[in-house]
């Protein structure tokens, strides 16, 4: 079954969507959208480093994404506004990454594959890493769900309940880095943030509880991956962007329908 590249691609897309959904909810709730973007952009530097050092792309991207996310967490609240800080770090990392890639002679690198993903080239090993990473992220978030939610609502509330909200922030940061690393192959660094935010945002008006929102986001993300890949195959369009397009269309439909029903009530 896994011999078919479309099957592997679909499984990869669904895997990323499953990890991105609950994490994406937190990104939306905590207004960390730009933070996700920054981490993802930094990953291209990781890709360049891995190619230079001839190590696994996943490992390189994960390491740099993690360093980036931790740097932002440490530097935040020390002089610069968060969005300024992210703007500086994210785009510098992206620029350094692109420059670093240009130094790589010998190997011809298809940069597009990392910027927009290359889901149709997902190997069995890739699939294993994607599902392993996704399972780790989902397990982490499920384990800390109540604490993460409390810390998201209010820091002092977390302290008064007897746990450190900074540790919960760290768990999200870690999950973000893992998700970015496994999603590079699927949607590429430029569209990872879209996979985090769009399904979660689309799920908002369909859910009455935080858990429901995460589940609905997972369903929307998974469906977008399946339908997006199918359309990419039929219309011969790039796979990663097609997945994001489907998610965006779902978002638009949900909101248009929502407006209509709200007007009627």
């Amino acid at each position: 079954m896994l011999d078919d590249f479309m099957t592997r691609a679909t499984l990869a897309g669904v895997g990323v969507a499953l990890a991105a959904a609950p994490l994406g909810c937190f990104v939306v709730w905590r207004r960390m959208a730009y933070f996700g973007d920054a981490t993802a952009h930094a990953a291209i530097l990781g890709v360049a480093l891995s190619l230079t050092l001839q190590m696994s792309i996943f490992a390189g991207a994960l390491a740099v994404a993690l360093i980036m996310a931790l740097t932002v967490t440490v530097l935040s609240g020390r002089g610069y506004a968060m969005d300024t800080l992210l703007g500086v770090l994210a785009h510098s990392a992206l620029a350094f990454g692109l420059v670093a890639v240009s130094f790589l002679s010998g190997v011809r690198i298809d940069l597009m594959a990392y910027l927009f993903g290359d889901i149709l080239a997902v190997s069995r090993t890739d699939l294993l890493i994607i599902w392993g990473g996704a399972a780790l992220v989902v397990a982490l978030i499920t384990w800390r769900w109540s604490e993460l939610l409390t810390a998201t609502l209010n820091e002092e509330l977390a302290y008064a309940s007897g746990f450190d909200p900074k540790r919960e922030q760290l768990i999200l940061t870690l999950s973000l880095a893992v998700t970015v690393a496994v999603a590079i192959k699927v949607v590429g660094v430029l569209l990872i943030a879209a996979m985090l935010i769009i399904p979660a945002a689309a799920a908002r008006s369909l859910a009455r509880s935080p858990e429901a929102m995460a589940v609905v986001a997972a369903v929307i993300g998974g469906a977008s991956a399946v339908i997006g890949l199918r359309s990419a195959y039929v219309f011969d369009t790039p796979a990663g962007p097609s997945i994001v397009c489907v998610a965006a269309i779902v978002f638009a439909c949900v909101n248009l329908l929502g407006w209509q029903t709200r007007d009627k009530i």
Binding site: V28, W29, L153, N154, S209, M213
Partner: peptide, 11 residues
């Protein structure tokens, strides 16, 4: 003050 982001549905 506890700001609950409007994007977070919670009863």
């Amino acid at each position: 003050k506890l700001h609950i982001d409007p994007t977070l549905p919670i009863t």
